[in-house]
Amino acid sequence: MSLIGLISFIGTIIIFLLSKKVYKKMNWIILSPLLICPLIIIAILLITHTSYSDYNSGATWLSKLLGPATVAFAVPIYKNFPLLKKHAKAIGLSLVTGSAVAIISSFLFAMWIGLSNDMVNSLVPRSITTPIAMDISEIIGGEPTMTAVFVIVTGLTGSIIGPLVIKYIRIRTSAAKGLLLGMGAHGCGTSKAFEIGELEGTYSSLAMIVAALISIVLSDTFFPVLQHYLVG
């Protein structure tokens, strides 16, 4: 790893930990480490005239940890499995609804504001975890790299909006809180859910995974039908 890569890797961790500290102290939703930390890094890159590819040569090792982190979600699911089994019906119904709504609403809103077709197709899989979202984007005729950007924008907005949605539509149960965060904002929502509580986080982890699987099925069956009727 080059020196600049090493600095990027360690620097990102330090800035992230500091952002987290500030966030905990101020407890202000807009100060989410996922917003503040990248903004600080972008500012540093601009000031020091460092290119993104130089930065990412080291920082990419952090992105790579997303893989084992996804595997690691087996642990909270294992620990809470009896409870999850008990609520299987609520989990299944809400996630199928959520996945279908994710596809339909992205599609309709995007058509409404007049986005191009490949843009719409890149947007549709954005609420699920990056590697799967990119695969689906490819399948339905979107641009996978564009989708990766939409996934992160969704995660960011979702982790900020999620708690407001919970508050304003008066969601009461831990299950519903966790499920909506994991469904709407994948890993970023799940991280938020663990902030609320262990149980919410577990539901959210499960939502993230099951939603991804449901979306694979829907994008192969339901989406082409929708596309056919709405675009013609």
């Binding site: 609520h87 019906k89 609520a90 989990i91 119904l93 809400s94 996630l95 609804t97 959520g98 709504v101 994710a102 609403s105 992205s106 809103f109 995007a110 504001i113 986005l115 843009m119 947007l123 954005r126 609420s127 939409f150 924008v153 969704t154 907005t157 979702g158 909006i161 999620g162 949605v165 919970i166 539509i169 969601i171 009461r172 149960t173 299950a175 519903a176 809180k177 499920l179 909506l180 965060l181 469904m183 709407g184 904002a185 939502a207």
Partner: peptide
Amino acid sequence: KLVAVIVLSTIVVMACTGLVADSVQ
């Protein structure tokens, strides 16, 4: 516009998921 679509759609997805889960429970 894109961010607007993402924000609106995310609100709708989260609200529907949460309401269904809450009512089933």
